[in-house]
Simulated assay, not measured.
Amino acid sequence: MDQIYDVEFQNVTRKFDQFIAVDDVSFGIKKGEFFSMLGPSGSGKTTCLRMVAGFQDTSSGRVLLEGVDVTGIPPYKRNVNTVFQDYALFPHMSVAENVGYGLKIKNLPNAEIQKRVSEMLSMVRLPDVGNRKPSELSGGQRQRIALARALINRPGVLLLDEPLGALDLKLREEMQLELKAIQKEVGITFIFVTHDQEEALSMSDRIAVFNKGKVEQIASPEELYNRPKTEFVANFVGTSNILSVEETKRLTGRDGKLMVRPERVHVFANAKEDNHSTGYRTFKAILKSQVYSGATSKMHFQTPDGSRIIASTQNLKISADHIAVGSEVLVGWKDSDMHLL
């Protein structure tokens, strides 16, 4: 028996005149998953989200919700809700009125509305703001209220269109943890659209990486980062050292390109080729620049043949080794640190 997904794309294509925004995409999203669609601007991820919501039609192919073809069905007849980046809260209404608006439209009794609004505000950790206006709240609080308003209707699927994009870095990191915790608490399928790979890696059960209208890879965060299938995924999800086809052939005898993550690159300060490098493939390199990032630094090296290698190193180690820009050192990695794309 075929698996029934909460959301499924079957050979979906979406064209805008001659531009193909989504190109023959097929995949399924499991019930209760936190599923992220990740990619650069124009990659097709938001168009896919809008087709699930019913805001956009397919040019060909089908979109299914819980096994039912909803292609052509209007948004208000789909069991989904959407949280947008700008939150779209009604400024003239109180927070409680905003959260309960969907239930009021359904003509539920006031007592039921008040009860469920109170439950939702408690769930998003804002039980005491019901009488305030949205303008009296911080950006993070407004984001939570938008989430409560979307969840109060108990949708089968919640769609989140870059909802953290307007927040500053620290608040965004806090809200990532909150979103994941709330999703686990309610058990609803979340589909999260973002261009921020750290957001996707930190929250998702699985991630679909989009590029030019196609899905390059769908995998768990760990698999996506450690075993990317393509050079695009390796470079978009994190930073990578990509060895040329010729160098890969020389090192492994196999066709393709090798990837080594910067944190897997070891730097041997003042090392010689005959010591301190047992078990490593080592290369002479000159430190060209160093980017400080608090706990770590990214060190950019150049080898004699012109190749560039990036190493991510703990600053405590850098301080101890006293590596200066312009120094010649050895850099290297173990065979187990290489991944063939």
Results as ranks from 00 to 15, higher is better:
residue 210 F to P: 00
residue 87 Y to T: 00
residue 341 L to A: 10
residue 232 F to G: 12
residue 311 A to T: 10
residue 191 I to S: 02
residue 23 D to Q: 08
residue 248 T to Y: 04
residue 339 H to K: 14
residue 86 D to W: 03
residue 238 G to K: 07
residue 179 L to I: 11
residue 270 N to T: 13
residue 292 Y to T: 10
residue 75 P to R: 04
residue 247 E to M: 10
residue 15 K to I: 09
residue 113 I to E: 06
residue 284 K to P: 10
residue 310 I to H: 09
residue 5 Y to H: 08
residue 226 N to Y: 11
residue 244 S to K: 05
residue 222 E to D: 12
residue 94 S to P: 06
residue 164 L to I: 01
residue 25 V to M: 01
residue 40 P to L: 14
residue 323 I to H: 03
residue 258 L to P: 06
residue 80 V to L: 12
residue 297 S to E: 05
residue 116 R to S: 13
residue 301 F to P: 00
residue 65 L to N: 02
residue 93 M to S: 06
residue 146 A to F: 04
residue 315 N to T: 13
residue 195 H to G: 03
residue 62 R to F: 14
residue 17 D to S: 14
residue 155 P to Y: 13
residue 250 R to Y: 12
residue 78 R to A: 13
residue 116 R to C: 12
residue 134 P to K: 07
residue 224 L to A: 04
residue 99 V to Q: 00
residue 231 E to G: 06
residue 76 Y to T: 10
residue 274 D to V: 11
residue 282 T to C: 12
residue 185 E to M: 13
residue 327 S to Y: 14
residue 137 L to K: 04
residue 199 E to A: 08
residue 321 D to H: 13
residue 171 L to V: 15
residue 263 E to D: 13
residue 191 I to F: 02
residue 291 V to Y: 13
residue 252 T to L: 08
residue 166 A to T: 06
residue 38 L to N: 00
residue 303 T to Y: 03
residue 96 A to W: 11
residue 61 G to A: 06
residue 165 G to F: 01
residue 327 S to V: 13
residue 133 K to M: 15
residue 93 M to I: 04
residue 292 Y to Q: 11
residue 84 F to Y: 05
residue 238 G to T: 07
residue 92 H to A: 08
residue 180 K to M: 14
residue 108 L to E: 03
residue 319 S to Y: 12
residue 109 P to G: 13
residue 299 M to A: 09
residue 23 D to K: 12
residue 115 K to R: 13
residue 304 P to E: 04
residue 25 V to K: 01
residue 4 I to T: 07
residue 124 V to M: 03
residue 166 A to M: 07
residue 20 I to S: 08
residue 6 D to H: 12
residue 209 V to D: 00
residue 55 F to L: 15
residue 184 K to M: 09
